[in-house]
Amino acid sequence: MRHDFLDRYSRLRSPVHRLPAPLKLATALVLVVVVVLLPPEGRSFLGAVAVFLLAVAGLSRIPWRFLVLRLMLLEPFVLGVAILALFQPGGGRLFLFLVAKCTLCLLIMVLLSNTTPFAELLRVLKAVRVPALLVTTLSLMYRYLFVLVDEAQRMRRARMSRTFTTQRTPAWHALATVVSQLFIRTTERAERIYGAMCARGWR
């Protein structure tokens, strides 16, 4: 399992990566709000935003293949909801407009997450007075996310190498056991982390 499936390219070196994180987060927020609020008449503005985003993507040196794949991965969620718009009169144009808007917003967020390390985003959240408990939770989550995903993967591999059944019921039982073991190990790890945090003078 790759560790960096979330923000693979957030540590590249490029003019976009060097920009301050607060600026990038604020720009992303403003762009998303503007695109979301755009009435159907403002189609040409969507084009302008798209050109701007493509320029940013080019400057940031994120591989195009990754961007396209990531968008394709997320697009089914958009299409799933947008397709419901086809079931009403005049839905065709609304459908296209919705898909265009949503794809742009997805591109904004994918670019933000791949040009800004999450730790810096957290620093911005801390600076704008997001409650400390939430910031602590988010940073611990980001720190241990990859550890736990790895742990789940290891347990899954161990199970696969020891069981040979393809039947559904035992598979569900076994997978549920993996999830429960993961939770038990998570609580044990949390206790160790608390001990380590106290030892280093937390609070």
Binding site: L140, L145, F183, A190
Partner: peptide
């Protein structure tokens, strides 16, 4: 306070558990 780190870890757990696919 003993359970504060558990919040972050439990969030990571939920995220990791969501990646385990049930057929």
């Amino acid at each position: 306070p003993r359970r504060v780190p558990l919040l972050g870890l439990a969030a990571a757990f939920v995220f990791a558990a969501q990646m385990i696919n049930f057929p």
